[in-house]
Computed example of a mutant assay.
Amino acid sequence: MQKDVVIIPKCTHKERMQENFDIFDFALTDAEMTQIEGLDTGKSLFFSHHDPETVEWFMSIL
């Protein structure tokens, strides 16, 4: 939210939905935001979306 990124949580329980709205009672520091930004390597941890073999495999299971 501090970076103006839309967040769409998946939830089916009313209590958890209410908890998801409780995000406005704190803010991350600049140092914390920098640490989080450092986690993004720009690469998938699971597979490459640009690898032709991976794309072919996905298309084969459709």
Rank of each mutant, 00 (worst) to 15 (best):
H49N: 10
M33C: 12
K43Q: 11
T12K: 09
M33K: 10
S48D: 03
C11G: 09
M1P: 08
E32N: 06
D4L: 01
T29N: 00
M1K: 04
N20V: 04
G38L: 05
M17P: 13
C11Y: 05
S48F: 07
H50R: 07
H49D: 04
S48W: 05
E32R: 09
H13F: 09
L62Q: 14
D40R: 08
E19G: 02
F47G: 00
F26I: 06
K43S: 04
W57R: 07
S48R: 00
E56K: 13
I36W: 12
E32H: 13
I7L: 05
I36Y: 08
S44F: 04
F24M: 00
Q2T: 06
V55I: 15
Q35T: 15
L28R: 02
I36K: 03
A31T: 15
T54H: 02
K10V: 15
L39M: 12
I7Y: 14
F24P: 01
E56V: 13
F21V: 11
W57I: 10
M1Y: 14
L62C: 10
F58W: 13
E56H: 08
I36R: 10
F58M: 05
T29P: 11
N20H: 08
T54Q: 03
T12W: 14
S60F: 02
E37H: 08
S60V: 15
L45Q: 03
I23C: 10
W57V: 07
F24K: 00
S60A: 11
V5D: 00
S60Y: 03
F24W: 07
I36D: 00
T54N: 03
F47E: 00
K14S: 09
F24R: 00
G38P: 15
G38H: 12
H13D: 06
D51W: 02
P52T: 13
H13G: 02
A31K: 10
D40I: 14
D51M: 01
D40E: 01
A27D: 08
A27G: 03
D30C: 06
L62H: 10
D25T: 15
D40P: 07
I8K: 00
A31Y: 06
T12A: 09
D4A: 02
S48P: 07
K43W: 09
P9D: 07
K10A: 01
L62S: 13
W57L: 12
K10L: 07
T29M: 03
S60K: 08
L62M: 13
I36L: 08
I7R: 06
V55T: 08
I61G: 00
E56P: 11
I23N: 03
A31D: 12
K14H: 11
E32G: 08
H13N: 11
E37T: 14
Q2R: 04
Q18A: 09
L28G: 05
V5A: 01
L45D: 05
E19K: 13
V55M: 04
K3M: 13
D22Q: 12
L45R: 11
V6C: 06
T41G: 15
F58H: 03
K43C: 03
T54I: 13
T12M: 11
L28T: 09
